[in-house]
Design a protein around this nucleic acid. Structure first.
Lengths: 341, 341
DNA sequence: TTGTATGCGTTATCAG
DNA sequence: CTGATAACGCATACAA
């Protein structure tokens, strides 16, 4: 086992000073061609790699960006990560991923940990519990310390920073409009409780679509789910007593639960009821019937978030609070779970 | 914007030396009760947190473990991560996740990056391309540098290190035995090409199960898939011309493709053909019919890998190559996609 | 009880 | 052209 090679060791080995080695390796013109070659050859031979930790300490920069996510068993977040990784790697940045598991405490802990030198900035989607508590001091904290923060997906107006979101309301409206276009008359929605920002917005899109088509919303056709646990049963119960010909479910899980509920009730999808979801992951794509849905373009969201963050990181002066909110367009994907009457 | 508080600033503010502050904060008995209180109060008030980078440099330890994964859009890997995070956090370790995207180059790059000071050790599942090339120099490299490595899932005999695997062969055998138990006579397998270690092992389990029951394997009922791309079509073609009553598919994706292929052929699952998969994610759980499958216990794998790694990290002396391979038991999950004839 | 000096690995500045 | 020195933030052996 050979410990990692350092400048000091190279210097000793070659009988020159540390600073000479350092300069030679960075192609400084101060160093003679000869020494430079000698040093570089040696470094290459023994595969010298500078120690990132030392560099970070010296430069007060880590060239690392931290992603904090509520969960990862969710294709959407996985694709966002890919997007971030993509542009981060292009620009020579490293990526650290941490999970909050939707817990406020874990979110705070993770951010503190990363903020203490591990990371130059953050890309974050707010944990469910945090949205519920409306306690964002940890976000303000890192911003105050001069670490840029980019929020995506689950964002919050109170925090002044760059944001990348989709137009959830418009996306939902698009989904419901699709149901209306194919002839659905009694359209239900399966959504989350209102404190989940995206749930609330998608519910709003549902209402707007109905209104835009002169259909009056019926409270009885709206199901708001608090907890993923037990949602399947809740959805089945809900469907049992409603007579619907279209359903908009705000995520992949709810969509599949809905279809199962309908099947159990003896109804066929899309023959009797059309179902459209939100988010386009493996589940939507592989399910039978495959799910019509709204594509959130997670990779694009991640890529833009990374670009915004890196731009801000590399801007020499503090570009006076010119925070922007980028909106990524959603698109309708028509598959088997919806069909014209 | 206030830059982060350092020991030096506290020292200046309180008019004591840096080392006094340092000692006071670590409750050294060398420091008078009075000074200690004063320093701690100040630190608390201004929310002092030591700089991880400086600590890492000083201690030559990062208390961070790096996970390198082939992909993440895969519930299995997501659950492994949860397992790792769980025990890592318990033991005060941080987790960095990097993706190789199944590319050899990215795997090497990521490991080099992390090895240069970001991480004390690795938990890794080998990229597909790496297994194909059989080039593991980057793994030997980190081991040589004294950084422990724990391999999981896709492991390789050539590398001497701790490993956490499931018994893929036994798991596959269990799956096929289940098909046999419920009365299947003509059982096909949809698997990967042999250079994917787990694919090969699962194929072997399939063969062993047949043999154990006195059924002779039929080459014509074995489909080996090279690329995920286009696998759906390949599977459909395969099924079109075979007369089967049972199918073992080595992952969730293949299982669902198989079911779709059968449906298109006018066959019902499980009425006409029983299908069993491998790996238990959202897809297997939500699909209609829900998939009978082999549970890999990803969280358990992650937890064990983390424990092995941390143990080795904290072992004072180099415990002379007592590498161990832990085997996590798989279990059969019976759901709707298989039924007794 | 407190402070000074040293070192972790690197680079920048300045002196030789 | 080369090398000594200081600094990044922290901890610790050693001096006072």
């Amino acid at each position: 086992m050979k410990p990692k090679l350092t400048l000091k060791q190279i210097a000793r080995e070659l009988d020159v000073s540390v600073s000479t080695v350092s300069k030679a390796l960075r192609d400084s013109i101060e160093i003679s061609e000869e020494t430079r070659q000698k040093v570089k050859a040696f470094a290459k031979l023994y595969n010298y790699k500078p120690n990132n930790i030392a560099l970070s300490l010296k430069n007060r920069k880590t060239r690392t960006i931290g992603i904090v996510l509520p969960e990862i068993v969710h294709d959407f977040f996985a694709t966002v990560i890919s997007g971030v990784e993509q542009v981060a790697n292009e620009k020579g940045y490293n990526v650290i991923i941490c999970l909050s598991n939707n817990s406020f405490d874990r979110e705070v802990m993770n951010m503190e940990m990363l903020a203490n030198g591990s990371t130059d900035g953050f890309i974050l989607s707010i944990a469910k519990e945090t949205q519920q508590k409306k306690d964002y001091h940890h976000l303000e904290e890192v911003i105050n310390q001069g670490m840029p923060l980019v929020l995506f997906d689950r964002v919050v107006d109170e925090i002044k920073c760059d944001k990348v979101i989709i137009d959830d309301t418009a996306g939902a409206k698009k989904a419901v409009q699709h149901l209306i276009d194919i002839g659905c008359k009694r359209i239900g929605i399966i959504t989350t409780v209102d404190y989940i920002s995206v749930g609330k917005l998608r519910t709003q899109g549902y209402l707007e679509a109905l209104e835009a088509n002169g259909m009056s919303p019926d409270e009885d056709l709206i199901l708001k789910i608090e907890d993923m646990q037990g949602s399947e049963k809740e959805i089945a119960e809900f469907l049992k007593t409603r007579d619907l010909d279209g359903i908009f479910a705000v995520n992949e899980q709810f969509s599949t639960s809905a279809i199962r509920g309908l099947l159990n009730k003896g109804l066929k999808v899309p023959d009797d009821v059309s179902v459209i979801g939100f988010s386009d992951g493996e589940l939507a794509h592989r399910f039978i019937p495959s799910l019509s849905t709204i594509n959130q373009h997670g990779a694009e969201i991640g890529a833009r978030a990374a670009r915004l963050l890196i731009e801000r990181l590399e801007r020499s002066v503090d570009a006076e609070e010119s925070y922007q909110t980028q909106i990524v367009e959603t698109s309708l994907i028509e598959r088997e779970s919806t069909r014209h009457k």
